[in-house]
Each structure stands twice: as structure tokens, then as C-alpha cells.
Simulated assay, not measured.
Amino acid sequence: MRQSTVEVVLTDDERETLLRWSRRATSSQALALRCRIVLACADGLSNTQVGANLGIHPTTVATWRKRFAANRLEGLADEKRPGPARTVTDEQVEDVIVRTLETTPKGATHWSTREMAKQSGLSQSTVSRIWRTFGLKPHQVDTFKLSKDPQFVEKVRDVVGLYLDPPERAIVLCVDEKSQIQALDRSAPVLPMMPGMPERRTHDYLRGGVTTLFAALNTATGEVIGSPHRRHRATEFKKFLTKLDKEVPAELDVHLICDNYATHKTPAIRKWLLAHPRFHMHFTPTSSSWLNQVERWFGLLTDKQIRRGVHKNVQALEKDIRDWIAHWNEDPKLFSWTKSADEIFERLAGYLNRLPNPKP
């Protein structure tokens, strides 16, 4: 005998919830469809009518009609499906993690998935999943260098203070030199990229000379003032300061963030600064080039112009550098500094605490 259709009667709260779930952007498509099925059934439509309206089989409509009538809103959730039993125990996972963090394999400096699988008795794919889950990457290594500057704290607070709270009626410029930029020409013409084939070039090259780029990055706008010079002395740095003095409006003070290179502190430079009192020098701590924002800009210059550039002589190299600076200044990108000095010190303390024998 044919079974009677289960009647669906909704309360006001249930109808409101079903409508919200059916329209919510974060609801899964399956849940939204089930909500529409129940709402249509509550309007008195038959399973066949609901199926025709929603483009599904009447049997599907009958299933969710019955589940809602029996369990209400909770009945619309997916039931737990049986799966295979877990084969890797917590102890085995812990063993892989401990081995990875605290030991090294014989004949190697770090673990590979193949070597760890051999030692642990697990499959290589299982080891890989464990490492991904816990963020372990034995094949990668980063470098760091701790500054030994006795005025490290004071200098960090000074420079970061200029980034986060620059003085009024003043301009903050990150200044540095990118020295020993080589004009390199390949021993054979570069083969252009083709479908399925990357650009190809010879591994050997012809040297065409070197140049040095003096650059100042405006921390407020991202604009760069640059000047290539063939030599890297206090004389060239003084010429660059004169260039900055001409290009920066006279009514603004100029705060220069520099590293501790000797050419920045010679008697000639100090004399020039005394004659130009609107210029103020701020020095980053030793071994802390990461604190100078122009270093990031130098990285972009290297990636986009120098590393893969081909230059027969220094004149061609300097022309390309000037052209790239002009192109950059047409739409400069601002480097936003976000970390406070206290956050930097906290991060540094984390490194120190991980050292075997941290030194003060």
C-alpha cells in the first residue's frame, strides 16, 4: 500500500531560520537546497511538485520531509558517515615530530621524507602529511645576524619613531648606496622565450665595469632620488647630499636614515652637515640593514632591472637605472612600516631564547 505523505508544519522561528539558511552566502549548497525543500513542503506541495520545481527526484524530497518531521532543524545536517579505521597512532605522530626536531639522520644534515619513512616505519606520504600539519620544513633554512651595537635599543627607537611618527614640516629619507653594480654582457646573444621553452642565456659573461647607485627613498611618498657614481667615497656621498639639498624644498627639514658606513661620518661630511643645519643624520644599528627601507627598494631594482639585464658598458647600465627610477617615480609604491620598536625587541628576544647559550 502507498504510504501517506508526512505533513510539515513550521513554527515562525523555524520558518525564519530556514529562510535565512537558504539565502545565507556562507551556507553550503546542500543545506540551502534542503531548506528550500522543507519550505516548499510546508506550503502544502506534494513531493512530485516540489521535485519538479527544484529539479530533484521526488524520493529526495520525501527523504528530507521525513527527516525534518522527525528531528526538525537538526535533521537537515549531514549524518556521520563511517570511514576506515585510523592506522597512524598519536604515538607514531609524536615520534616523527620528536625525531624531526631533536635528531638528524646518519650521513645527512637534515631529514628527508624518504629517510624519515625508513626510520619510522611509516609511508613517505604519511610523513609528508605530518610535516605539513605541524609546519615542519627540514629542507628549508633561514639566516639571521644579531647586532652587537651597544646603542642598538636607542637607534631602533629613533629610526622606528621616524617611520611611525615623522616630524612635522620635515621629510624622512632612507639613504644608502648600492655598490659594485656590474655591467655584464653575455658571451652570446640571449635566446628569447618561446612556448614551452624559457629564456636562455650563456652562463659566462663579459665585464663592462662597475658603478654605484646613491639613492634616497621618501618614506612618505615612496619616491626615490638616485644618482649613479663611478666611485664610492665620501666625495661622491657629499655630491649626493648636495643633490638632495637642491631637490628637497627649502622650507622642510631633512632627516636622513643611513647605515654606519665610514663615508657617512668623515670630517668632510660632518663639516657639510654643520653648514646645512636642516639636515639631520640618524644611523641604523650595525648589522641591521633590514631597518633601512631603501634596502627593500634596492631588492626590487635588482629583480626587475639588474639581475637579468644585459649591458655592454657602464654608460648603458647607468642609463637603464636612471630610466627605471623615472618609471618608478611615475607611480611610486609606498612601503608601510607597521612594527613598533617594542614588537621588534619582543621578536628579537624570541630568537635569543632559542639560542643554546644566549649571550647578553
Results as ranks from 00 to 15, higher is better:
P249D: 04
F240D: 01
L162T: 03
R67T: 09
P249A: 12
P285G: 03
T211W: 10
T221R: 12
L33S: 14
M116K: 06
R129V: 07
T286R: 05
L173A: 00
I97Y: 04
R67N: 13
L31V: 08
A341Q: 02
P332W: 02
R308K: 12
R15M: 08
E330S: 12
E346K: 08
T89L: 11
C35E: 06
T126W: 04
L301N: 05
D245F: 00
R296E: 07
V61K: 02
K145R: 12
K333V: 11
R72A: 13
Q124Y: 05
E16M: 07
L274T: 11
N313G: 06
A268V: 08
R114D: 05
L300T: 10
V156E: 01
H110A: 13
K238I: 07
D142R: 08
K333A: 10
R307Y: 07
V141L: 15
H203N: 10
R308A: 14
M1A: 12
F144D: 09
E7H: 10
S227N: 02
P138W: 07
P360F: 08
L352A: 10
R81L: 13
L136C: 05
Q3I: 13
D320M: 06
E102V: 08
L39C: 10
H311P: 04
R24N: 11
W297M: 00
L146P: 03
L348H: 09
S27M: 11
W297I: 03
S187V: 15
F335K: 05
R86P: 13
D185W: 14
G350T: 07
I56T: 01
E318G: 01
A215E: 01
P285R: 01
I181Y: 09
V127H: 00
V159T: 03
I181W: 02
S123Y: 09
L191V: 14
E16Q: 15
R65Q: 09
L184A: 03
S46P: 02
R308P: 00
V141G: 13
P277D: 09
I171N: 00
V127R: 00
I56K: 02
R354L: 13
R81G: 14
